[in-house]
Design a protein around this nucleic acid. Structure first.
Lengths: 251, 251
DNA sequence: AGCACATCTTGATCTGTATCAACTCCACAG
DNA sequence: CTGTGGAGTTGATACAGATCAAGATGTGCT
């Protein structure tokens, strides 16, 4: 199959996501060395797997466009969704300790990735301290994200979970330079429900209520936030009262 | 204050936990270099904090004896417990991406730790590839553990959660060379409840039932597992049927 | 365009766990 | 030894969200 070169040859130097990805903190010469080990793969179709549980760990991947859902299959069959990975995110590093992937990554859209063979990455990182630091930093970030996820699951009501989920998405969009108030979200309610520890029915009911209350709507893969501060309140993240004041002038 | 040197001078070379900790995969000369940057601190009393939310990130810590509970304080005040760290575990690396600790680590017993200044660790790791690999591997391990925690929180019943929790503890004990069936657990019900996303009342009720059914008991900081296979069944982790068979001779 | 299947919505009911409340047990200080 | 406060237990009740069920809407394929 012949694919237009232009889609895949963009280097890290020119990539719009370099502030979120491995190049962060590297100088130009270092980015060029990184570029040399990165393989741009042809796009995955929606539903295709990037890796599956049990496969040998070979590389980590940076999402360039599209996205993945990462799930683990439990003994009971039904799968749990560990997270969603959007452009700029790195995935696959969770397989590092065991040498085998412990989860499956499925494209939720037509998706392009950069493949970074781990052996090469590790060797380069040992020569480029700032790259190594960034690798550690990205993993540390994933860990704190997963902790936030666990906190959401253990202490939040269904409504808070959905509000928080949309708020997180909104902030990720914003950091990528897109609108925080309106974006596309090509996920099934079922997948979001699994991620949030809820059922699709509950998700549907709460979406109906929040749309009714003009907080936000999610219809036909399109999210529109109508009242950001109400959303923050519902998510339990309002910039309220005097938390800052205790450290500055007030009181 | 003068403390007996003998308590703190044990080197990594002689440490019984080296198979679980940074030295894994290093040769003797490398372990000696690691030893040179590790600081053995004087013990923390029960209830003392190793680090607190908001403190600057300076070092990672290896638990030598005792243990920690690591919790995050949410805006609403009550704290969520992210995990328990036992001898051989590494903690503190979650602060790496932001440069500030995002959680608080409190000793649950008299506890000794090895402090590894991160700046030194990073420099040494850049010279010793196997150390760098082990650092990445430990972080990857933490990430998969946190995913298991999230899975427990989103899909398991209260009984399954407790069974799984005790099973995890049992396996950790075993890997450290202790009995898998009987061990000390100096945690409050309240802390375990928070970790499992339950209330102390529910924990108490289920413990009573499981002791009644002779699966395991937890009284006076002492856990005794009476029926390991029943515990595995309750935890949804029984070595059941033909999962292996599908890959071998059966059928 | 039209069919078929998957996803989403909406409603009725059920249930596991939280919540509230009272009591017991224990550790520790004096 | 006794008083005090925190932790654990046990029971009664409430409710959020699961489950079951049926219909509406969408989406992909021929």
């Amino acid at each position: 199959m012949i694919t237009p070169i232009s889609l895949f040859n963009a280097s890290c130097t020119e990539c719009g996501l370099k502030k979120l990805c491995f190049p962060l903190g590297l100088d130009k010469a270092e980015v060029l060395r990184l570029d040399a080990i990165v393989k741009r793969k042809s796009p995955l179709q929606k539903g295709e797997a990037l890796f599956r549980t049990g496969q040998a760990f070979q590389a980590v991947y940076a999402v360039r466009a599209g996205g993945f859902k990462v799930s683990t299959v439990s003994a009971s069959g039904e799968d749990q969704i560990a997270g969603f990975y959007l452009p700029g995110d790195i995935l696959g590093a969770d397989a590092l300790s065991s040498g085998l992937h412990v989860s499956t990554a499925v494209a939720i859209d037509t998706t392009t990735v950069c493949e970074v063979p781990f052996h090469d990455l590790e060797r380069l990182a040992s020569q480029v301290p700032s790259l190594n630091h960034q690798l550690l930093s990205l993993m540390s970030k994933e860990l704190t994200d997963e902790r936030m996820h666990a906190e959401l699951l253990s202490r939040k009501s269904a409504e808070e979970r959905l509000a928080l989920f949309v708020l997180w998405l909104s902030r990720r969009q914003e950091r990528r330079g897109f609108s925080a108030r309106a974006f596309r979200l090509g996920l099934l309610h079922r997948d979001v429900a699994l991620y949030l520890g809820l059922t699709p029915e509950t998700v549907s009911r709460i979406l109906a209520r929040l749309a009714e209350e003009r907080v936000f709507s999610w219809r036909n893969k399109q999210v529109d936030i109508m009242d950001m501060s109400a959303l923050e309140v519902l998510a339990g993240e309002a910039q309220n009262d005097n938390d800052d004041c205790q450290r500055s002038q007030c009181g």
